[in-house]
Structure formats: C-alpha cells, structure tokens
Design a binder for these strands. Structure first.
Length: 870
RNA sequence: GCCCGAGUGGCGGAAUGGUAUACGCAACAGACUUAAAAUCUGUGACCUGUAAAGGUGUGUGGGUUCGAGUCCCACCUCGGGCACCA
C-alpha cells in the first residue's frame, strides 16, 4: 500500500468492527485484527513528532529455510510488549524488523540446486514475514530492510569505503581452511574434526589474500565505551576479555651477535627481569633463521615444520605439553648483563606482543613447566609474604635477588624498573591487546561485493590525480612479484551489484565464483564515474579509463548487520544512510534485545563501525546500543537445546493453529524470567490459554453478547478495587523492568478476583483490557470493541492507578517470638508499637511462648511484622 | 585451568533481609452432565499428633543478624564463556 491511501479505508468504520464470533475463536479474531493493523498502518512511526521517542530494536533474523524458531518470538514478544506499552504511554515508538539475508546456507543451497541464492532468500523471507505477521507484532512494515537489497547494501559498501579511505582497511595474507579435494575455502563451521563437512575430505591451513579491518585501532575506545552502557555485566566482561588489555613494558635484549640487532620482548612483569633465565621466540619469528646455529639447524627446521602444520586449534589443544627447541644463540639481559639462551617454542604466539618473551620460570606457570622439562635454571626474584617456598609463585610479594631493587613491593619495582629502562632507551612502558584485526573477506558469492578494483602503480598515480578521495597511503598487495593497488569505486557508482554467474562453485584456485566471470572481472574502468566495459573491448577514449581487475572477495555476513539499526531510521533515503534529522530525532535504540551468542562478535563489530561513523561526523553519538538485554534460550521438552535431529523442536505455526498467537505470546512470557534458560512445556500453554478464555467470559456471555454482570453503575468490593489498582501499578512496573512473567501472574490474580465479584463496573474491564493489550493484543482489541469502547484499545492510553487506593485501612501483622512465626493479626494501620505488642501478646498462639518470660526487646517492621524477643 | 551465572514442591517458577512455595502445569476429590469435554469448588512439602499445635525444611557445611532462599566464607553439582595472551 502506498502512503496516503489510508484515508480511503474509512478507518473509523473499520475500527468499530469486531468479529461476531460467539466464543473465543482466535483463528477468526487474530487474522481480523492483523489485517486491521496492517490496513490502517497502525504502527507507523513518524520521523517528525512532538512526542518523546522510544526506539526498541530486535536482532533481525537470518531467514533460514527452516522457518521461524520458537526462540525468535520469545525476544520479539518481549520487545513488542514494550513497544505497545510505550505507545500507550504516549511515546512515538520505532519498532522495526528486517532480514539479515546474506549468508552461507543460501549459498550452499545455490551450489546444490543451481538456482540464484536471491530467489531462495526471497522465498524464505516471504515465509518469515508471514510467520512474524501471524504473531501480531507491531512492526512498522514500511521500514523493513533486507541486507541483500542493492538499495541497502549500497550503503554497506559506502561505509566500507569510508573505512577504506580512513586507512582502516588493508589487504594481507591470512590462513584459512582449504580443502584440496573440493578446491574451496571452508568456513569454521564447515570443518568437522579436521574434515570437510561435505564429503569428509581432509582440510589444511592455507594463506590467502584477505581484506582486514583495523579494529585494533579502536581497542582503547571500545574498552572505554563499555563503561557507559547499560548492558549485562557478563557481556561487558566478555568484551573486555576479548579486547584483553594488559599493561607492561617492551624491553630490548641485545644479542651476542651484534650484527643481528636487538630482540624486542613484551612483558607484563618487568619487575621480574632479574629472574629471566632464558628467552622464547615464536616459531614464526623473523629472527628464527639468523639465530639458529648450524648445529641446531635440522632440529629447528623440523620443529618449525611441525608447528606450521598445526592449526590454531591443535596448537591450543596441545596446551598441556610444552615443546620447544634451542636455537643455539644467546641474548644479553639488559639489567644484569647475564647471557641467556634463546629457545623456539610454540607456546609463544607471533600474533601477540612481539612474538618473543623473557622467560621467568620462578614466577610464570608456563615458563616453569618449560624450564623443568628442558632443565633450565630457575631463579626466585619475588619473595612470598608468607615465605611460601613453592615455585612457580605468582602472588604478591617483595623483590629479592635483584640488586638495586631488593625489598621493593613488586608493583613499585615494576614502576622503577620500567622507568630505568626508559631512561636508558632499552625499554618503555607499553599496552598490549589480545584483540586482533578483523578478517573481513570471504571467498563466496552470496555477500556484498567489495567496491574495489585493482590497478597497476602507474594507473593508480593517474587515478590519484583525478580523485581527491583516495586514502593517504595506498592499499597494496604483491601478487606474482607485481604490486597491485586497490582503487575504490566512486561513491556515485554504488551499489556495485553481484553479476549473474554460471556456477556458484568457487573458482578452484581459492577465489570466489566471481573470479570466473571474466567479462565482469577484467575491465576498462572509468575512475571518475565508476563505469566499466569488458577488457576484451577496445579501451574507451579518455583520461579516466584504466585497465582494472575487480576484487573477487565478498564481505562477511557481519557487514550488513553492523549498521542496520541506523537504516531503520530512514530506510528509503537515497542520498545518505539516514538523514541528519532522523539520526538526531531517533538517536540510538533505547533497548536492544537478542541472544547472548552475539555478546562479542556482532556487538563488537557494530560498535566499531559506529565509532568510526561517529569520528567521521556521520552519527551524533559514540555508542550504538545504550541498553542491551539477552533473552534466554528455550530448550526442548527434554530440557536439551532444540534441534531437528533430536525431534524436540516446537513449531510456532503449530502452536498458533492450536491455541492462537495471543496464547503463544502469553506463554512465552509466562514461562519464566526472560533472561533465563527454560524448557518448553506443551501442557503449560493450556494455563495461559484458559486465562484468556476466562477474560473472554468475564466480558461476554455464551451468545457473545455483553456479560450481564457488567454495568456502568456497578462498583467493586473494596478488596478487589485495591487489587485492581495494585495490578495497574505492578503490570506497569513489571513491563518497565522486563519482568513479564510476574506481570501475567498479577493479571491472573486480578481476573480470579473479578470472577468472584457480584457485579462488574465497565471501567474495571476497560482497565484490564488495556493492561492485557500489550501481551494479547488481538483478544484485547476484539473485547474492547465488543465492550462498546471507542476506537482501538491501542489508542486508549495506559490506565492509571490511584495511590490513595493502595493504602489499606487495616493491616495484617505477622507475629514472631524470637524470630519464629507465631500467627498473625489484623489491626488498624494507626496502631503504635506498644499497642501492637499488647495485642500480639494476648494472641492464644503466642501466650504459651511468652509464659513466664520477660520481654527483652521488640522489633516492629512497620506494616509487616512484630518480633518479640524473650 | 581461569572468569561468569544458577541450584526453591512431581514440574515451570514467586518472594524490597521480614508469613518460603504467589501464579500456572500436572495430580487427587467433589459439583454440574445420561456421559464426556468445558467450567466451577476444594486438597496438596516432610516428621510427630485424632486434632489443636509443635518440630524440620530453599544443593552441603559454617558465619553475620532480632530475623537469611536473599548478605559473607568454604565446598558440591549443573549451565555459559574463555583458553599457552607473556
């Protein structure tokens, strides 16, 4: 439907029209109201509004062929309740959905069937959309995004170009899984026990040309930014551990052979420098060859070969046994001029620090294990406070055996030694991170193509003269001895779409299927317009035309999901990722709900991109997700993770046809705390379904007409009236605190009480339906209309409670004697403590416990309990 | 190994340091019905006791407190994350 058509629907007439079913026929009611919401565009969010805004975001799904998993509606129901609640509270709510639709399964499907992954993806999206709409979620469907839509990924490519121009993207050789039999690169999940998932062929590590993003440049900011966000502590800690900041020092060790220069090491414990008895360098360290003496050459060569053939996984699997080989060379400890042997061992990683360490076996467990195995000396330099003689000792203590520093506490010694090394120009305090740069390319078809072409050095110079937007230092890669230069396509030529290919199989030489599309690949390229013609044709006339080869890598699935929350703000904008006004008005999501499995990667990558966009002045804030919440996993009936092979999968479609979407929504929320892991119980849904039917019967009689107990003049009994106000308060508080299970319990308690009322005021039911509407919106709409209320229940606002009604005239006081429960009494609220003690002491159950004893002390907790100590 | 989180009826779970087991499921008994379904009412931790009542109970053992499921210490079990990070 096109904007503006809404008027012609005669919205008012439609609104008042409920179904006329006699009993709770959810199969008729739910589609009816879904189509009402859709046709009236009831959930459209306006980018201009005087209302306060509320942006609530779901992690958008990957539209798999299996359809919606029961875990999807769990989180989606939670955010939908909040969205509907906030609307009722007068907020302009943005609640969008979309599809994270690039990815491996669609590509594998294409390889198998030969059909374009786009068509399979679209089929899956149609199915997902149908399922999500059947749940009655209040998404603004005008803002739907699809990461595989060129109008969307145009901006994914554009953001990549901003990173590229800022010097945050580069090309390097990186190891990937390679299957010689299949002649293809495999993803981690396609490798099972060292064999390919398809066919079970052996796989190996092989270096291939990859795009890498310099996320390490943002390590400090990514760490710093965590302090200000409202996230689960465990997630923050995981990101902190992933970034892995550690403070220490780089120290230069001179080598015995001065011609070889210095060996630079990183240590977090410069205070233990006197305890260094040997050095270790990684097998990949550039100095390995020159440090290896002739007598050790064969042993080192064999060791290096063994280490190289090990995957990262194997290297860490073998973590228990230390292995290594002596190089034959020595380094000189700069602080005491001792000569220490240099070993080569794979427990030192080239990718961390400097790939070389000073080993202090007395105070490091790994060094100690290694030293024991190879009989290397061990020197204690930290004395344990309790004189613990056991080594290795990694606790606190004072420095010993360190002339000039003895007696200092280790942090003090660390400071002093670092300073002394700095002064002598043989070391300096440094910070290291575990965080690695982000491998950002895949040798696949179904991903965003890189908006990059490769040209010769001469052509790059010509391009640089015509273009002002190239990075300060060019990105290059040496292939077959020739240096290639990466040239970005002009922004105006985006999107760079995927060409159709004859086969979705990889090229066979480690490149994506795109490498086989010669006409697309080898081109004459216009550096100013981005236009291209196949290189087989004659070179077009003009300065701007260069000979180029397109980049054949595509981007990983993360790319599209790194910024989708921004696109929702202004999804049809053709000139920017979103307008400045939209970015300012909606700001970042007020709440982001999704699985904890994304605690590190997605959330870290998206934060990285956001910070880059912030530095470029494109977004107005430095963190994308203010508040984050993880929903727990829903397990199968057997208490085990749902999986097809176990046959314990619950299908939302089946549940909807048996009980309705409202029951499913209610049950998912009633199951337990949203963040908890909980088993699915098909019987349990009966309970919430009965509750909804009970609500129906409170409103309507068996003929579907108004329940005769309802009238405008009726009043509730005092207790139920108080309960109604308590419920209004509690449901609101619980929704804000995301405690949906207890909100539902409270509504059940209220309805149980209403059932016992002789007469029902219409206002009480109107309040109840407004409380229920975020949870069971279809039923609430239907009953709202049939109760004769005007408009949609969603526009009726949130009911308010009267604090005065919450105050009781009498109170129940629990009596304790010596902390033990001995009954309770109902007393007026204005009773004093001494009056209360007097009354309590006279209670038949209490008397025997006080008999013959003097009251020593009484403790009165106002309105709750009196504890008498004897 | 290290870092988190969690252990409460037959089950899912509830409980600002203040009546442990709300709400729901399952079960049992009863009402309505020719019958069933639906609906309604009631029962429900353990030990002693006819009962009234008393005692014991939130993974185990200690502690703080007038009072602990809740706070502190140690341990056990389960779940999640990380894993030679110098």
């Amino acid at each position: 439907m096109i904007d503006g058509d809404v008027e012609s629907l005669n919205v008012v007439g439609f609104t008042l029209m409920a179904t006329n079913c006699k009993d709770y026929d959810f199969l008729e009611i739910e589609p009816h109201w879904q189509s009402f919401w859709e046709q009236t565009k009831a959930f459209r969010a306006d980018n201009k509004s005087s209302l306060p805004k509320y942006y609530v975001l779901d992690m958008f799904p990957y539209p798999s062929g299996a359809g919606l998993h029961i875990g999807h509606p769990e989180g989606y129901t939670a955010t939908d309740i909040l969205a509907r609640y906030k609307r009722a509270r007068g907020f302009n709510v943005l609640h969008p959905i979309g599809w994270d639709a690039f990815g491996l399964p669609a590509e594998q499907h294409a390889v198998k069937t030969g059909t374009h992954p786009a068509s399979n993806t679209q089929n899956n999206i149609v199915n997902f959309r149908r399922q999500i709409k059947a749940l009655g979620f209040s998404y603004d469907w005008d803002r739907e995004v699809d990461t595989t839509d060129p109008k969307y990924f145009r901006w994914t490519q554009w953001i990549f170009l901003q990173l590229f121009k800022k010097g945050l993207a580069y090309v390097d050789e990186r190891p990937v899984w390679w299957c010689p039999e299949l002649k293809t690169v495999l993803a981690n999940e396609e490798v099972i026990d060292g064999k390919s998932e398809v066919g079970g062929f052996p796989v190996e590590r092989r270096n291939l040309r990859q795009w890498v993003l310099r996320i390490t440049a943002y390590a400090e900011q990514l760490l710093e930014g965590l302090k200000g966000v409202d996230w689960p502590d465990s997630t923050k800690r995981m990101q902190e551990a992933w970034i892995g900041r550690s403070e220490g020092a780089e120290v230069l060790f001179k080598l015995e052979n001065p011609a070889l220069g210095d060996l630079k090491i990183f240590t977090t414990r410069p205070d233990t420098l006197f305890g260094c008895t040997y050095m270790v360098i990684a097998p990949e360290h550039p100095l390995v060859d020159s440090l290896t003496v002739p007598a050790q050459r064969d042993a080192v060569k064999a060791y290096r070969f063994k280490a190289a053939s090990k995957s990262d996984l194997e290297r860490t699997d073998l973590a228990k046994d230390k292995s290594g080989v002596f190089s034959g060379s020595y380094a000189i400890n700069p602080i005491n001029h001792e000569h220490v042997p240099i070993w080569i061992a794979d427990y030192v990683l080239m990718g961390y620090g400097t790939g070389a360490i000073m080993a202090v076996p007395a105070h490091d467990e790994r060094d100690h294990e290694f030293a024991v195995q190879y009989q290397l000396p061990i020197i204690r330099v930290i004395q344990a406070a309790d004189n613990d003689e056991k080594l290795p000792y990694t606790g606190d203590g004072n420095v010993v055996n360190s002339p000039g520093y003895d007696g200092l506490s280790w942090p003090e010694a660390k400071k002093r030694i670092s300073a002394d090394l700095t002064a002598r120009h043989i070391g300096k305090a440094t910070i290291n991170y575990k965080l690695r740069d982000w491998l950002f390319s895949r040798q696949r078809y179904w991903g965003e193509p890189f908006p990059i072409v490769w040209v010769s050095e001469t052509d790059y110079r010509r391009a640089a003269a015509l273009r002002k937007d190239l990075p300060t230092s060019p990105v290059t890669f040496v292939e077959h001895g020739v240096t290639q230069f990466a040239l970005p396509v002009p922004d105006v030529s985006l999107p760079l779409v995927l060409p159709d290919v004859k086969s979705y199989l990889p090229s066979g030489n480690g490149e994506s299927p795109l490498a086989n599309e010669t006409a697309w690949l080898e081109i004459w390229f216009n550096v100013e317009t981005g236009a291209a013609v196949p290189a087989t044709q004659a070179q077009p006339a003009g300065e701007a035309w260069l000979r180029a080869r397109r980049e054949t890598n595509t981007m990983p699935q993360w790319a599209g999901s790194c910024w989708y929350y921004l696109r929702y703000l202004d999804p049809r904008n053709a000139t920017a990722i979103a307008s400045d006004e939209a970015l300012k008005y909606w700001d970042v999501p007020d709440l982001y709900v999704g699985g904890a499995e994304h605690a590190v990667l997605h959330l870290l990558y998206a934060r990285f991109w956001h910070k880059v966009l912030f530095d470029l002045g494109i977004v107005p804030q430095s963190e994308p997700f203010k508040k984050l919440f993880h929903q727990g996993i829903i397990l199968g009936e057997d208490g085990v993770k749902m999986s097809k092979s176990r046959g314990n999968v619950a299908n939302p479609d089946d549940v909807i046809s048996a009980y309705g979407a409202d029951s499913l929504r209610m049950y998912l929320m009633f199951l337990g705390p949203l963040e908890a892991m909980k088993p699915w119980n098909p019987k349990g849904i009966e309970g919430v379904h009965r509750f909804l039917r009970k609500v129906w019967r409170e409103c309507l009689n068996e003929e579907g007409a108004l329940n005769p107990r309802i009238s405008a003049e009726a009043t509730l009994t005092a207790d139920t009236s108080k309960l109604l106000h308590e419920t209004i308060k509690k449901v609101g508080d619980d929704i804000e605190g995301m405690r949906f299970n207890t909100a539902i319990s409270q509504m059940m308690i209220l309805v149980n009480a209403l059932q016992k009322e002789p007469a029902l005021p219409r206002t009480a039911l109107s309040d109840l339906l407004r409380l229920l509407a975020p949870f069971a919106p279809h039923l609430a709409e239907e009953l709202w209309a049939r109760l004769g209320e005007s408009g949609s229940v969603m526009t009726a606002g949130w009911p308010s409670f009267d604090p005065a009604k919450l105050v009781a005239i009498s109170m129940k006081i629990v009596i304790q004697v010596n902390g033990k429960h001995r009954g309770d009494i109902n007393v007026p609220v204005d009773l004093t403590e001494s009056q209360l003690v007097e009354l309590a002491s006279a209670e038949p159950r209490v008397i025997p416990h006080l008999a013959g004893k003097a009251i020593k002390k009484t403790i009165y907790v106002k309105g709750r309990l009196i504890n008498i100590l004897v």
